[in-house]
Amino acid sequence: MSDHRHVDRDGVRLHYVVAEPAPEPAPTAGSPGTVVLLHGFPHFWFTWHRMIPALAAAGWRVIAPDLRGMGRSAAPADVEAYSPREVVDDVLAVCDAEGAGRVVLVGFDFGAGVAYDTCHLEPGRVRSVIGMENPFMGTAGTVPPLEGSAMMAEKHFLHLHYFSQPGVAEADLAGREREFLTRVFYALSADYHYLDVWQHPPGSTYLEALPEAPPLPWRWLSVEEMDVYEAEYARTGFAGPLQWYRAMDVSWSARKEFKRQTNPVPFYFLYSEHDPDLEGFHGRDPLSKLGRHHDDVRMVRAISSPAGHLMHLEATEDTHREILTCLADIAASVPA
């Protein structure tokens, strides 16, 4: 069972879910500890609803926050409120509220950036970090990311630029939440080649660039699960979540502080063969560059089943198995 809880930090109300470890955990669980699951967009804590009971059954306490701007957490209007320092302090506030000292962070999409920022800013609070799909956060170059995205968007549609324009996506997607979520989930999956959206011309809307999706249910997503996603985004809208894109320059500038520093925390990485982030957003052969960004690379594991960006939904059992393999190594080799 998962409990829904809140904590207030400097006027920002944060929602999170907690699941306690099973009374009789699996024998391979190792030492008890706390795992914090950090989601991306367009998600909220619910994206982990399959993983939470699996980790708890293996003896781990699980905390799954809604990142600020998403789900039931507050959505500050100022992009400066989404800086690395602010979102890292959110993670610490949730951990402090639950008495969790050094935790294992699992980060996916924007959540991977939060996890890596926590490793840089508060390494003493992180026992280990497991990255999913996103291997590192780039700070290279002299052009801020929003400016660079605008330059790319002069040649073809690019979601980063589309989302960065205040008010545009909110207006386009209002009342079409289910259509957008269904089509973007399908486009990000192994059933479609996501980078084909770049074939659409500048000025296209995201819905114009995304492919039509087959009717639900899919082999990896149920109608009922999409109902939950639709209800949440119909309730919140997209203004808060899209602040994460509009704050990209803020984050890029803040990360200059540790541009030349590597992550000192033990690092594990899990990826899928058809992930569009690895293909298009981290440069050439990003897996060969992990050592430039992380001091202590413990494991790099690919899931065996076909999956795109949403590995934990598309290949749930394989993803859980690999996550638990990483956690077993952490329990055995990294002090709590």
Score class of each variant (00 low, 15 high):
E224G: 03
F238P: 00
A190S: 14
A19K: 05
Y162N: 09
M248S: 15
P25A: 10
S189G: 11
L313R: 14
H120F: 13
M248N: 07
A171T: 14
S333G: 03
Q261F: 02
D3A: 10
H156Q: 13
A307Y: 11
W220V: 09
G175C: 02
A64Q: 09
S31Q: 12
H309M: 12
E24Y: 06
T205W: 08
P215R: 15
E86F: 04
H294Q: 02
L290N: 09
R235A: 13
K256R: 13
T142V: 04
G113T: 03
M299Q: 13
V297Q: 01
E224K: 14
P144I: 02
H320I: 15
P215G: 14
M70K: 07
D191S: 13
K259W: 03
E86L: 00
S73H: 03
R235T: 13
V36N: 03
T236L: 08
D191G: 11
M299D: 04
L290W: 04
G167V: 13
W220M: 04
C326P: 04
R178Q: 12
I330E: 10
G111W: 11
K155A: 07
A97W: 08
P201W: 09
P25E: 08
E24M: 07
L55V: 12
P25T: 08
P201S: 12
R298P: 03
G291A: 08
F108R: 06
W244S: 02
M299E: 03
L207Y: 05
H4Y: 02
V18R: 10
M132Q: 05
G59A: 09
V197E: 11
D329F: 06
G11F: 06
R301G: 00
F44E: 01
S149A: 15
E147W: 05
R246S: 15
A174T: 07
L310H: 12
A56P: 05
V62Y: 01
L290K: 07
V12H: 00
L242H: 02
R85H: 11
P53M: 09
I130W: 07
M137V: 15
A29Q: 13
A26W: 13
F136I: 08
Q165D: 12
D329N: 05
V35E: 01
V104L: 09
I63Q: 08
H193F: 11
E177Y: 00
V168S: 01
C95K: 01
D89R: 14
P217K: 13
A234Y: 04
D249E: 05
Y192M: 11
L160N: 07
H312T: 14
R50N: 09
I52H: 07
L313E: 13
V94K: 01
A234S: 15
P201F: 02
R301H: 00
H274I: 08
F110N: 01
F258T: 15
G148P: 03
I52W: 10
I130H: 05
D249Q: 00
P217D: 12
A56H: 08
V184Y: 06
P135A: 08
F281Y: 15
L158V: 14
D10H: 09
A231H: 03
D172R: 05
F110S: 01
V106E: 01
H200C: 00
A22I: 00
E212H: 12
L310I: 06
V12L: 01
T316P: 00
Y116N: 01
A190H: 15
